[in-house]
């Protein structure tokens, strides 16, 4: 369970989020909103990449501000641009990075890397330079590098925005298949139709929080009003 308690966030004197309170328990949660609505900052609060200016964020009871390491082990984070997330030149090295940081022994590491690469159809690319992968494969590699650490929650910040349709579908399939709780920021509204919950942000506040069709209707109305 992730609890967001009365959280406000200010960056460089700009108010980003206003007194947000939420409890996230569903398995598939989507965060939508226009650009600059605060949704990207919001999800960065969930694994402690940003800490709230006011209020608290608790992941399974651990405060992101004081127990950052424990929180990061629980919450994996997939970024929009896989090029900024893949940090090693060779595919397998990149997947192993998180495991190395967790102190997983080499033999076990190898096996886990194999498993996750196999799951995302990247096993044959294992020894290849990561920059030679296609856009979709890169995003799958980024997801693999996070999932191999076996987090309880996966936060995804617009994982399909930079992809073409075919790759979008592949990545979306991969997300559907996650065993973990997934919290996804997205502009691709068709991807969230079968989610459990959709939260709509506008100007740093939540304007809807409901099942997908109701929340999305409210979102479209708000955008038309503006």
């Amino acid at each position: 369970m992730i609890e967001i308690q009365n959280v406000s966030l200010t960056l460089d004197d700009n108010p980003i989020l206003h007194e947000v309170t939420l409890t996230l328990t569903e398995k598939r949660i989507a965060i939508v909103g226009s650009n600059g609505s605060g949704k990207s900052s919001f999800v960065r609060l969930l694994n402690g990449l940003r800490t709230p200016s006011e209020g608290r964020v608790l992941v399974d009871g651990y405060d992101t501000q004081t127990e950052g390491r424990k929180v990061r082990r629980r919450v994996g984070f997939v970024f929009q641009n896989p090029d900024n997330q893949i940090v090693f030149p060779i595919v397998e090295e990149d997947v192993a990075f998180g495991l190395k940081n967790l102190g997983v022994p080499v033999a076990e590491r190898e096996q886990m890397v194999d498993e996750v690469l196999n799951r995302y159809g990247l096993l044959s690319k294992r020894k290849q330079p990561s920059h030679t992968l296609s856009g979709g494969q890169k995003q799958l590699l980024a997801i693999a590098g996070v999932l191999v650490m076996k987090p309880a929650y996966v936060v995804l910040d617009e994982p399909t925005t930079l992809l073409d349709l075919r790759n979008k579908l592949r990545v979306s399939q991969a997300i559907d298949g996650l065993d973990q709780t997934a919290i996804m920021v997205t502009h691709d509204l068709d991807l969230v139709e079968n989610f459990d919950r959709v939260i709509v942000f506008d100007q740093g506040r939540i304007i809807a929080d409901d099942v997908p069709n109701k929340a999305l209707r409210r979102y479209v109305e708000a955008m038309l009003d503006a």
Binding site: R44, N47, L49, R69, R72, R73, G76, F77, F79, N81, D83, N84, Q85, V87, F97, G98, N101, L102, G145, V146, M149
Partner: peptide, 15 residues
């Protein structure tokens, strides 16, 4: 500009 997100990504994976 890229450096910001890259360092976030590294920290997010427990470095």
């Amino acid at each position: 500009r890229m450096s910001e997100e890259i360092s976030d990504a590294i920290d997010a994976r427990g470095f």
